[in-house]
C-alpha cells in the first residue's frame, strides 16, 4: 500500500506534512460511552469501556478476534443494550440506545456481512437509505403525483449525488446480488451515506478486499470525512489501513480497553504489541 494514496490529504510532494491531529482540531465531543459493560449470560463481551468520539474525526476500534469490537458498535447504535454504563450522544445521556433512535438522530452503519437487498438495484438500495427522510405516506407515494413526486425527485437527486461521489454510475441499475463483493461494500456505504449521517459506523469496511479495492475504499472513507464532515467510527483488521487513515484508535482485547490514542501512540504501546503478537511466558 503506497503512502501517497492513503495518507490523509497528503499529496505526494508533501511527505513532511504534519500529522492529521496536529492540523485538524477535534474538540467537540459527539459521542461518549462511559463504563459500558455487556454480557451475554455468563460471557462478558465488554467490561468497563469508556471512550469518546469527537466531531469530524475518524475513530478506529481495533483488537484481535473476539475482542468485542462489533459488540461495541452494536451498543452504540442500539442493537445491544449494555447492562451497565451510559451513552452520551449529542449531549443527551441514556443508558441504552434504540436502533430507530440511533437512525433518527443521525447514526448510520454498514455491516460486516453485507446486508443489502440482493434483488434490488444499486439505485433502489441507496434509495432505501432515504426512507426515514420521506414525509409523504404511502398513499401519496402510490399516486406518485404532486408533493410525493416532488419529494421523490429531491431524494433521487441526493442519491444521484452519492452515486456520483462513490463512482458507481456504471452499476446504477444493476441488481446488487450480481455485483462483486468490493462493489457491494461500496453500495452499502452509499446506503449509509443516504441517511445524511452525522456519525457513520463502519464494521470492517475492507474485509475480504484486494489491495486495489482497499485503496479505493480508504479513499472514499477519507473523502466522506472531508467533503461531508461526517464523523466516522470504524472497525478494521488491516493495521496498515487503520494507522494510515484514522485520527485516534481504541484498542480492545477480551472486552477490556487496552489503549486509546493516536495511531503513533497505539503503535508504541507495549500492551498492544503483546496482544497482537503474543507474549512469551518464560
Amino acid at each position: 500500500m503506497t503512502a501517497a494514496t492513503l495518507e490523509r490529504s497528503a499529496p505526494p510532494a508533501q511527505s513532511e506534512a504534519p500529522t492529521p491531529n496536529a492540523r485538524r482540531n477535534f474538540s467537540e465531543e459527539l459521542l461518549k460511552v462511559e463504563d459500558i459493560s455487556l454480557s451475554f449470560g455468563g460471557v462478558k463481551a465488554l467490561t468497563n469501556i469508556s471512550f469518546d468520539i469527537r466531531k469530524h474525526e475518524i475513530r478506529a476500534i481495533i483488537g484481535p478476534n473476539g475482542a468485542g469490537k462489533s459488540s461495541m458498535l452494536n451498543v452504540i447504535n442500539g442493537f445491544y443494550h449494555p447492562q451497565v454504563g451510559t451513552i452520551t450522544y449529542k449531549g443527551q445521556a441514556r443508558s441504552q440506545m434504540r436502533p430507530h433512535e440511533a437512525a433518527k438522530t443521525g447514526i448510520a452503519r454498514t455491516f460486516q456481512n453485507i446486508a443489502l437487498f440482493k434483488g434490488m438495484s444499486t439505485l433502489d438500495n441507496i434509495m432505501t437509505g432515504r426512507l426515514l427522510k420521506m414525509r409523504r405516506n404511502f398513499l401519496w407515494q402510490a399516486l406518485y403525483w404532486g408533493p410525493a413526486l416532488k419529494e421523490e425527485l429531491e431524494h433521487r437527486e441526493k442519491v444521484e449525488a452519492i452515486i456520483d461521489f462513490l463512482e458507481i454510475q456504471a452499476i446504477r441499475k444493476t441488481p446488487v446480488g450480481r455485483l462483486p463483493y468490493g462493489l457491494q461494500k461500496r453500495v452499502e456505504l452509499g446506503r449509509a451515506l443516504a441517511m445524511d449521517p452525522e456519525l457513520l459506523l463502519l464494521d470492517e469496511p475492507m474485509a475480504g478486499m484486494n489491495v486495489e479495492e482497499k485503496e479505493d475504499m480508504c479513499r472514499f472513507i477519507l473523502d466522506v470525512n472531508d467533503e461531508f464532515g461526517t464523523t466516522i467510527a470504524l472497525i478494521e483488521h488491516d493495521m496498515g489501513v487503520v494507522m494510515d487513515i484514522s485520527d485516534r484508535v481504541v484498542v480492545l482485547d477480551y472486552g477490556r480497553l487496552l489503549a486509546d490514542g493516536t495511531p503513533d501512540e497505539v503503535r508504541a504501546n507495549q500492551q498492544v504489541i503483546d496482544a497482537y503478537l503474543g507474549v512469551s511466558h518464560d
Partner: peptide, 9 residues
Amino acid sequence: KRGLRDYTY
C-alpha cells in the same frame, strides 16, 4: 474539486 479541499498549493 472533490478531495482537493485541503490542498493549499
